[in-house]
């Protein structure tokens, strides 16, 4: 296939606490190819944002990468110094955060924030950087750019601000964009616009995208492949059509069942019984086994793992619960 932009190998993120070490991301391996959009889906606390932050090198201490490797287009980036990482962030990896209302510094004009980012990563002069900022703002669909460029963030709506955040992520034409819940804080009508915009811009440029969300609908519309995370582990990985149509992991099946649909006329939405375990209380074996209708003895004993397409479920891996 095409070249691999992001290659995460056996990533493990740990938080040392007073009551012992918590594993927030447990042995995750995934790759994203050039121009590909990988959706990462899961409940809050499943470790999906944490994976994104680990790739950006922005884990909040005391969180740290305990083991594993992160490769970006053939360069290992998980062991870089803070200074070296500064040259990667923004230039080779762009980021989009959840809440556009708080992502922009309220005291700086949006144009200045764009120009700052552009000049950090390129050799452009101030006026050339401003010209580039205007082009970027136009590209992400801000109307009347010449007037708006000197506005402050509070003078824009939420959707417009997220467009500016996308422009900021694209400043240096990065190879990879990590979009952490980019539409969660927006109105439903705006969500579709922003998702479509992100998809179009990345397709045009061949940018790889890691789209972190808990919204299966966004994934189904946007992503090429999807990684389902549960309790810090990878539950299922595969092409979107496969995972959506023929989920193999009981958890994924449950996730699909919990999406309301206009076509289906069920009286009630299906629900997965129970809740995702806290990080300190992950059961032995498969993390999903207490909530799983099909769990057998092996599920309570051994942890199923995947490092490529497939489902981390003994049922899928061995066809039966031994």
């Amino acid at each position: 296939m095409t070249e691999t932009v992001l290659d995460v190998r056996n990533l493990r993120v740990e938080f040392p606490t007073r009551r012992g070490t918590l594993t927030a991301v447990d042995d995750i391996s995934l790759t994203i190819a050039k121009g590909e959009i990988l959706g990462v889906v899961g409940e809050s606390g499943a470790g999906k944002s944490m994976t994104g932050m680990a790739i950006l090198g922005l884990l909040e201490p005391p969180g740290r990468i305990a083991s594993g490797e992160i490769w970006l287009s053939g360069d290992r980036i998980d062991n870089l110094s803070e200074t070296q990482m500064q040259a990667v962030r923004g230039r080779r990896i762009g980021a989009i955060f959840q809440d556009p209302l708080t992502s922009l510094n309220p005291l700086f004009r949006v144009g200045d924030q764009l120009v700052e980012t552009i000049r950090l990563h390129t050799q452009l002069s101030k006026s050339a950087a401003r010209q580039r900022a205007i082009e970027l703002m136009r590209e992400v669909g801000i109307p009347a750019v010449e007037e708006r460029i000197d506005n402050y963030p509070h003078q824009f709506s939420g959707g417009m601000r997220q467009r500016i955040v996308i422009a900021l992520a694209l400043c240096a034409e990065p190879e990879l964009i990590i979009a952490d819940e980019p539409t969660t804080a927006l109105d439903v009508s705006i969500q579709a616009q922003i998702t479509a915009l992100l998809k179009r811009l990345c397709r045009e440029r061949g940018t790889a995208v890691m789209l972190v969300t808990h919204d299966m609908g966004v994934i189904a519309e946007t992503a090429d492949r999807v990684a389902v995370m549960y309790a810090g582990r990878l539950a299922e990985l595969g092409a979107v059509e496969d995972v959506v149509r023929r989920p193999q992991h009981p958890y994924t099946t449950g996730l699909m069942g919990s999406i309301p649909s206009l076509r289906r006329d069920e009286a009630e939405l299906q629900m997965i019984p129970g809740a995702m375990p806290r990080l300190g209380a992950i059961p032995e074996g498969c993390a999903f086994n207490p909530r799983c209708a099909f769990a057998g003895p092996k599920c309570r004993r051994d942890t199923p793992r995947i490092h490529g397409n497939g489902a981390a479920c003994w049922l899928a891996l061995e066809g039966a619960t031994a």
Partner: peptide
């Protein structure tokens, strides 16, 4: 967030 985002911008 904007401090974190500023760092994410490099």
């Amino acid at each position: 967030d904007y401090v974190k985002f500023a760092r994410a911008r490099g």
